[in-house]
Design a protein around this nucleic acid. Structure first.
Length: 551
RNA sequence: UGUCCCAUAGUAUAAAGGUAGUACAACAGAUUUUGAUUCUGUCUGUCGAGGUUCGAAUCCUCGUGGGACAACCA
């Protein structure tokens, strides 16, 4: 029985457009500028645009909004395509705004002919000053009333490279006193003698966003052009150009962009983190980029689930990152093979166990699949976590302490008899005795212990590097804080453990595999791994249940 | 001292004039050879004031609060 899911406001619009017969089929688009890597905020937009098309049997174009050659690069084009595919979506057509430069030029000429565009010789400072403020009207200048013929000639000269950067612009002739600043004769074309990653040196004039985006939507017959809230004031201009150009009426709808706690989401800030080496690159696992999450071990489906859960609306939001963590835990709990790894080791010696014996034990790979087992080995000396021993236990301490017993996962119950320390007081060895009748799956001891801890056989253990990540920032909303957001970077966001002990078979694990290191979290294999020198990334911790109280 | 957008538990998101619901978070308890998982329960909400109506989270007015807008960026 399918559960009734309510529609978001965009779905409501689409269902109305479909049932009224306005459109037979919807066409959406995802329009990134290729000047950076995609982040989780883009994932929301991708899931929305592609998801809508999928739901209503429509299509989605991928269009690179490449109208500013000085900031854009093919490196970004490739990474963006890879990330969309990885997320699990397929675009109908791959387009570029630059594909439309010829057509856009003709559109501009059409507006000049209609007396709705003019060439302005003013420097940018003058244009900005004449624009007025939100509360005061702007001023018209002497170029505004040039003849159509002169505008036509000048615009052609601009195109032909007769002028230097900044000498002239083409402006729409709307209303310098308009209440909407964007309608005060917005710039349509500017001169940039720059090499474009696709059109090369063919053009030295480039359309502005406002004279490219809506027109490109229209050329492709996009029915629903979905963008973020900051473009709300642009909609009036978007519609104005479409009306005056008399072209296909695409319509723009705006939703609230995604913000997440303990991270930043703007390309500008992410670029700073990369350039100033606060992280190792765009795919650093601490980055909120799709490549960062991928490297950290997030799956595409967990991100899609997240985007589905956060909903789509028009109010500013700050989503708790624990929802994203919930989504990946929920999935990995079902799929990740349980293994044992000791990150902060101390040696446990079983005094009454024969040092010449290596015993084979079985353990389950997945808790809800009892038949799915593997063999592990056990012997006199084991590695366990330092944190699983307390010389003077706190209240409700279920792990090891002098005289206290624990179960070694899938093995025996042991009792702590003594421990040793070095001259500096650091714990060096824990001595235990084991209860032979307490062997897992064959326990006749009748002993009940509260704690079960993980371990690795010291005789056969392999080692690996393990990287633990925590949130990149110490405050919920770094971008909203006073001062430089970088002053809120968490100094402990990365912990590298050079020599963790792992079960030996993990050395042969496959690249994309996900594991749960029992009691330590979910892990994946990092791309820095080399044969014999594995590197694991912690995708996410397990939900923390035990919080020792200070007394 | 302008225009536009927005306002529902801690965080998100439903309820299209008719029982304020769901998820995450938090907190309890049960189960557990992972202090995980699972299960059960608890907690907390319609920004304010008027109005329309038999009835308002929803419609209207006025406030209040938050956000956007003055790049030859997108």
């Amino acid at each position: 029985m399918p559960e009734e899911k309510s529609l978001n406001f965009i779905e409501e619009i689409i269902e109305q457009d479909l049932s009224s017969g306005k459109y037979e089929r919807i066409l959406t688009r995802f329009p990134p500028e290729p000047n950076g890597y995609l982040h989780i905020g883009h994932a929301k937009s991708i899931c929305l645009n592609f998801g809508l098309a999928r739901k209503y049997n429509g299509r989605t174009n991928l269009r690179f909004d490449d109208t500013n050659p000085v900031t854009e690069d093919v490196e970004y084009v490739e990474s963006i395509k890879e990330d969309i595919r990885w997320l699990g979506f397929t675009w109908s057509n791959e387009y570029y705004s630059s594909d439309y430069f010829d057509e856009l030029y003709l559109f501009a000429v059409k507006l000049i002919n209609k007396g709705l565009a003019y060439v302005d010789d003013s420097p940018s400072e003058k244009i900005a000053a004449d624009k007025g403020t939100p509360t005061e009207p702007g001023k018209e200048n002497e170029y505004r009333n040039r003849s159509v013929e002169e505008n036509l000639r000048l615009f052609e000269d601009m195109k032909n490279g007769k002028y230097k950067d900044g000498e002239k612009v083409l402006r729409a002739k709307i209303d310098m006193a308009h209440i909407n600043m964007l309608m005060r004769d917005p710039i349509m074309y500017r001169i940039k003698h720059a090499h474009h990653h696709r059109t090369g040196d063919k053009w030295c004039i480039y359309p502005m966003y406002d004279f490219a985006h809506g027109q490109s939507d229209s050329i492709e017959h996009i029915t629903h052009s979905i963008c973020t809230l900051e473009f709300v004031p642009h909609r009036q201009l978007y519609d104005w150009f479409i009306e005056k150009l008399e072209i296909f009426p695409s319509r723009q709808y705006e939703f609230a962009r995604l913000n997440m706690t303990y991270t930043v989401m703007s390309k500008r800030r992410l670029l700073q983190l990369v350039n100033e080496k606060f992280v190792s690159g765009w795919d650093d696992p601490r980055m909120p980029t799709l490549s960062g999450f991928r490297r950290k071990g997030y799956t595409p489906s967990s991100i899609r689930t997240f985007c589905d859960k956060i909903g789509v609306a028009k109010r500013d939001n700050l989503i708790d990152i624990s929802l994203l963590e919930f989504c990946i835990r929920e999935e990995l709990n079902e799929t990740a093979v349980r293994v044992m790894a000791v990150l902060n080791p101390v040696k446990l010696i079983i005094d009454n166990y024969d040092e010449n014996i290596t015993e084979e034990l079985t353990t389950e790979n997945l808790p809800n699949d009892p038949g799915n087992i593997r063999t592990i080995t056990f012997s006199k000396e084991l590695w366990i976590e330092k944190e699983d021993f307390m010389e003077v236990p706190v209240k409700k301490w279920f792990r090891l302490a002098p005289g206290q017993m624990v179960r070694l996962k899938s093995a025996y119950i042991v009792r702590c008899e003594s421990f040793t320390k070095d001259e500096e007081g650091n714990l060096t060895e824990i001595h235990c005795t084991y209860i032979p009748e307490s062997r897992s799956h064959n326990d006749t001891s009748n002993l009940k212990v509260k704690g079960t801890i993980h371990w690795v056989n010291a005789k056969t253990a392999a080692t690996a590097e393990v990287r633990l990540y925590q949130r990149l920032f110490t405050v919920e909303n770094p971008a909203a804080e006073e001062g430089d957001f970088k002053s809120f970077i968490n100094p402990d966001s990365l912990t590298i453990i050079k020599n963790a002990f792992i079960e030996p078979h993990l050395q042969h694990a496959e690249k994309g595999a996900h594991f749960q290191f029992i009691r330590n979290g979910y892990f994946c294999i990092d791309k820095d791994s080399k044969p014999g020198a594995l590197v694991f990334n912690r995708t996410v911790t397990l939900k923390e249940g035990f919080k020792p109280k200070s007394d």
